[in-house]
Simulated scan of single mutants.
Amino acid sequence: MISVFPDRIEILSRGTLAPAQTMEGFYMGESIPANEKLSEIFLQLHISEKSGRGVPKIIEMYGKDAFSFRENSITASIPFEKVNRLDNLGGNKKAKLNLRRQFIIKEIRDNANITTAELSKLLNISDTAVIRI
């Protein structure tokens, strides 16, 4: 589940680490699904991938503190303030936000209830492209 707040975006993943997963492995991007069959279905539907790039990318940009672990969930919190600060540094090419990303962040800030469909119409791109961005 994705929640948008005035100062951050939170990505909530229900469940915990897979029994075979370690915290170190999680932070390194090891992809060990808690439910192998469900993971395969999501892969076949192109809803998820098994590349293990997501967590390391978040850590690279926002640090390990972006993640919080609760009894039945894992949350990644992406603060808008840090996104803006990183974007304005200039020297960090990976932190630069392209115009579409900047536009999407502005629209979400202005209307936390905006949908993917509405963003795709505003940008004249597919829903899938909006999700990817």
Rank of each mutant, 00 (worst) to 15 (best):
A34P: 02
H46E: 12
K82Q: 12
A112L: 04
L119N: 07
T22C: 07
A95V: 07
E24R: 10
E36V: 03
A112S: 15
G25Y: 01
P33A: 04
P19C: 01
K82R: 14
Q102A: 11
K96M: 13
F67H: 08
E81K: 13
I104L: 03
D87Q: 03
N88Q: 15
M28K: 13
P79R: 09
L17Y: 04
N98E: 10
L86N: 11
E107A: 06
N84Y: 14
N72K: 09
S73C: 10
R85D: 14
R100P: 04
G63R: 01
D110W: 00
A34F: 04
T115P: 08
I59H: 01
S68K: 12
I125T: 10
I32T: 07
S126L: 01
E36L: 01
Y27K: 05
R70L: 12
I125V: 14
M23E: 14
T128S: 14
E30T: 02
G52N: 05
I125D: 10
T116Q: 11
T22I: 01
G54L: 13
G90S: 06
A20Y: 05
K37A: 15
I105Q: 09
P79T: 10
G54W: 04
Y62I: 01
L119Q: 08
T75C: 10
I114K: 07
R109L: 11
N111F: 02
F26I: 00
F26D: 07
R109D: 11
T116V: 14
A34C: 00
A112N: 15
N98F: 04
L17S: 07
I78M: 08
P19L: 02
S48F: 02
S73K: 05
S68N: 14
N72I: 00
T22D: 05
K57W: 10
I108A: 12
D87T: 06
T22N: 04
I104E: 12
S39H: 11
Y62T: 06
D127I: 00
L99E: 15
K37H: 10
K106V: 09
S68W: 02
D110H: 08
I32D: 03
S120P: 04
G63H: 06
K37D: 12
L122S: 14
N92F: 13
G25Q: 09
E81P: 00
G63K: 03
I74P: 08
H46W: 04
P56Y: 05
T116M: 11
G52Q: 07
L89K: 04
N35M: 08
G91D: 09
E30K: 02
R70A: 14
I59L: 06
A117H: 10
V55G: 09
Y62S: 05
K93T: 15
F80T: 07
S51W: 01
L17Q: 03
I105S: 10
T115H: 08
I125R: 08
L86W: 09
F80P: 01
E24K: 08
S126P: 05
K96L: 14
G63C: 06
F42L: 08
G29T: 02
T115M: 08
P33F: 01
A117C: 04
N72W: 05
K94A: 15
E30W: 00
E71A: 10
N92G: 01
E49H: 10
V55H: 05
D65L: 04
L86C: 06
N72M: 01
E40R: 01
E49W: 02
D110P: 02
I108V: 15
Q102K: 15
F42Q: 11
I114D: 11
K82H: 06
R109N: 15
K50C: 05
I58N: 08
R53G: 11
T115E: 12
L97K: 12
